Simulated scan of single mutants.
Amino acid sequence: MLAGCAAPKQPARQAPVVDRSPAPAAPTSPRAPAPAAPIAAPPGSENAGKPGYYTVRPGDTPRPATASAPASASPPAPTPATAAIGDAIALVWPARGPVLYQFDETRSKGVGIGGRAGDPVLAAADGRVVYAGSDLRGYGNLIILKHNNTYLTAYAHNQTLLVREDQTVRQGQMIAEMGSSDADRVKLHFEVRRQGKPIDPLSLLPSR
């Protein structure tokens, strides 16, 4: 009876088994590539397509290599100074009397023309009065006409002056009356100056 009443024999408990082997590695997937860094736009790309701009492409040849550099601008060479066209003049006799003396570069610098007091003194060519007075010693009452940038004529020893400075006169116009101011007799002393230098008036006056 004791045996029958005894509790049924329990099966022996087994200790839990612990698997200490390393766990299998989890399957790995291919690594995704890192996102590429944004490419910086080249300088000047914001002007692409705009008028007046050109986009360089592979194979382009640099423009200084194919085109010659523009010549540097330089001022034109100065033109040598010359007498203006038309500066040559044709003269008429400034008085009717005889020639008293001829040109001498070292002494008279002009010609003397005789006459009577009050005889007309005429402009030998068109011009402008640049002097009318008696301030130049040895010339008496004097008139100087400028005809152009090259020629002047002078009329000395007048009795009366009939024109004033800066007045325009015409060839053959009466500009004075012949006289003997600052001279030993009545006469017209007539000079021609080319670029300031006295020349022989007879070389420009018509022959009589």
Rank of each mutant, 00 (worst) to 15 (best):
P98H: 12
P98N: 15
V99E: 14
V99G: 08
L100C: 01
L100Y: 11
D104F: 02
E105P: 15
T106Y: 09
T106R: 13
T106P: 01
R107P: 00
S108M: 06
K109Q: 15
K109W: 00
G110A: 13
V111A: 01
V111E: 00
V111F: 00
V111L: 11
G112I: 06
G112K: 03
I113W: 05
G115A: 05
G115V: 09
G115E: 08
R116I: 06
P120Y: 04
V121Y: 11
L122V: 12
L122G: 03
A125C: 07
A125Q: 15
A125T: 08
D126W: 02
R128L: 00
R128H: 02
V129D: 11
V129K: 04
V129E: 02
V130M: 08
V130L: 04
A132R: 05
G133S: 10
G133P: 10
G133N: 05
G133V: 12
S134Y: 01
D135M: 09
D135N: 12
L136T: 08
R137Y: 13
G138T: 07
G138D: 10
Y139K: 06
G140E: 09
N141I: 03
L142M: 12
I143T: 02
I143M: 09
I143Y: 04
I144T: 11
L145Q: 10
L145P: 01
L145K: 05
K146P: 00
H147V: 06
N148D: 14
N148A: 02
T150E: 06
Y151A: 03
L152W: 12
L152M: 13
Y155A: 09
Y155S: 04
Y155C: 03
A156W: 05
H157W: 10
N158A: 14
N158R: 06
N158G: 08
N158T: 11
Q159C: 01
Q159Y: 12
Q159R: 15
L161K: 00
L161F: 11
V163G: 03
R164Q: 14
E165K: 15
D166Q: 14
Q167D: 01
T168C: 01
T168F: 03
V169S: 06
V169I: 14
V169Y: 06
V169C: 03
Q173L: 04
Q173F: 06
Q173S: 10
E177N: 14
E177Y: 08
G179A: 14
G179F: 13
S181N: 13
D182P: 14
D182N: 14
A183R: 10
A183K: 07
A183I: 00
D184T: 09
D184E: 07
D184Y: 02
V186C: 12
V186E: 11
K187Q: 15
L188C: 13
H189W: 13
H189P: 10
E191F: 01
R194Q: 15
Q195M: 12
Q195I: 05
G196L: 08
G196W: 06
K197C: 00
K197Y: 11
P198R: 13
D200R: 08
D200K: 02
D200Y: 07
D200I: 03
P201E: 05
P201C: 05
P201V: 05
